[in-house]
Design a protein around this nucleic acid. Structure first.
Lengths: 338, 338
DNA sequence: CTGAAAGCGCTAACAT
DNA sequence: ATGTTAGCGCTTTCAG
């Protein structure tokens, strides 16, 4: 049988209030009784119940994390950083894979609320973002992670997607590419990345073809299909910007299946700088998000909320960084020949 | 302000006991009042507090999952399956990355206990497994996942590691390999896989060299170092069995850095059949764990525990399956020449 | 079929 | 410096 605060109080010959005070280090307790209570706690292996304390003290020391799929390396890596930051502050994380399905997301949201989590981190996509409204009205802080939804008045910690797209395309253009395709995932991030890319093209006086810009989901297969679509025709792009690494891997596989050499026949640039980009052959050039910083900031914001009930909403935008791999190359006469 | 059971009771003109009964579908409630209460609940957007109910009803609808690192694709994939099974039963999962450090693991264990989770799934490694003892004595069910520690009397759901190692080596032998190296991760699984492999060699009358069997941690870098160690000498194995896909990727990179062609100059076989094995070039031959089945069984076992307080401990061993990739090849005269 | 009442383990005034 | 007491929101006998 697990021992309770009563057992400790009785064994130590004090009241439960005193025990509570030494546990929480509140109030004034003489060093002598403090020591004694501590000793008894040790002896009885007393473990304060988080559940009971949450019912009064208002804290569950738990955050909820909604992501599309923990099996996706980008989210797994983000989850790891978030968890580390949370643990450092004594919090743990409930993970919720939504597959970007609104219904499942809402179910999780309500479940998390019923569990009285101390904060929710949203890193998944909603078809209908207004579903979030009821939760934004709550006491529980909500933070959008790696995602910016302009229409929503909510704390946001993200990377500058527009800038990332711009950097990717700018880099390709500098390498001499003029025929550039984009495979993006549906959702706000994808759109911003596309826009950023288009701006870079516009500034360079390059036009783009709408059939070379496709929106898909974010599996490898989606990237494969999207790229295949562009590459099968005789006139094809000399470079493709895939808006995340999973898609980029799909693009790479499509190129390989079509007998195209990367980067000789096709340059590919990804986004996220996940494990994937480092293990494919050739190593992907990719736009890196500072996930670690983002995770740190996210958790800090959540923690600050605990003390300061209502901080005004803030959006923090981190800058992405291009990581050079071997999947991109300058356009050469040879690659223009075919 | 969130509405409580009292608000609903008052608005519906009934007692909180009645509301509780319709929420939990217990006792006998007339259809008429049930409807009314339900309607009021809807109107007031009443969300029963999991915390309060856990304090009495004994259920938090939460499982804890200890794994070495969620950023490792094998664990991320396992977590996803476990989560799906858990959600189907109304449970959610707290993830805990321990990096296989005993201290951190124990901290998490105690935290989970304080949170009164309804079960713990252990998928990480302990240097000192006896640290688990105190938790095995508890009410809270504990399950070892994808790991078998013979010395521990605990529910276990795992893959037949010995058999997996056997299959891997048997396959290589059938391809004509005689010079076989093994890179394994420290821990019970790694050991079993090595033993299985050794048995296959023994049965085939092949001897092994102890310097070609190395134990390391489980990062890509570890696999790289381990392989490099074996491959740099003039006399090197013609095939390497890496005891998980991360290691296999490291082995592959080492081979590439040394100018060895895979599979022509070196065959590589991995373990786990994760995403990684599918995206590297060449695609890895690997031993697949039926993670989905294992996850299903694990959660079911945990759930059964809720009703039947003390089921006798059981170990369930699933059979692995070899997935043929392009990283293995028969020994040919050409590859024997160098 | 419904309600009153006694906790679950803990926190936080308020007394002493 | 320490103890008393009133809840937190809900479940569960036990009466009615």
């Amino acid at each position: 049988m697990k021992s309770t605060i009563y057992d400790v109080a009785k064994a130590a010959g004090v009241s439960i209030a005193t025990v509570s005070k030494v546990v929480n280090q509140t109030g004034n307790i003489s060093e002598k009784t403090r020591k004694r209570v501590l000793r008894i706690m040790e002896e009885l292996q007393y473990q304060p119940s988080v559940v009971a304390s949450a019912l009064t003290g208002k804290k569950t020391s738990t955050f909820g994390l909604l992501l599309s799929n923990i099996a996706n390396p980008f989210f797994a890596e983000a989850a790891r950083f978030l968890e580390d930051e949370a643990r450092a502050a004594g919090y743990s994380i409930v993970m919720c894979s939504t597959d970007n399905e609104d219904e499942r997301s809402v179910n999780y949201l309500s479940l998390l609320q019923r569990k009285q989590v101390d904060g929710m981190i949203i890193a998944c996509h909603f078809t209908d973002w207004s579903l979030l409204h009821p939760y934004l009205a709550t006491e529980t802080p909500v933070i959008l992670f790696s995602k910016d939804v302009p229409s929503l008045n909510v704390h946001t910690v993200t990377v500058d997607d527009h800038q990332g797209g711009y950097q990717a395309i700018e880099y390709l253009i500098a390498k001499g590419h003029r025929q550039i395709g984009i495979v993006a995932e549906t959702g706000p991030s994808g759109e911003h990345r596309i826009r950023g890319g288009q701006q870079a093209m516009k500034e360079a006086g390059i036009s783009w073809r709408s059939e070379w810009i496709t929106n898909v989901q974010s599996s490898i297969q989606d990237g494969y299909n999207g790229a295949r679509h562009m590459l099968e025709h005789s006139e094809r792009p000399s470079a493709i910007f895939a808006c995340n690494d999973m898609l980029a891997v799909g693009v790479l596989q499509a190129a390989q299946d079509l007998g195209l050499q990367v980067p000789d026949d096709l340059s590919i640039i990804g986004f996220d700088d996940t494990l994937l980009s480092q293990i494919v052959q050739p190593r992907l050039t990719t736009i890196s998000q500072p996930i670690s910083d983002m995770a740190h900031h996210t958790i800090q914001l959540l923690l600050r909320h605990a003390n300061t009930p209502d901080i005004s909403k803030q959006k923090v935008i981190f800058q992405p960084k291009l990581m050079e791999g071997r999947s991109t190359q300058s356009v050469t006469p040879a690659s223009n020949m075919d």
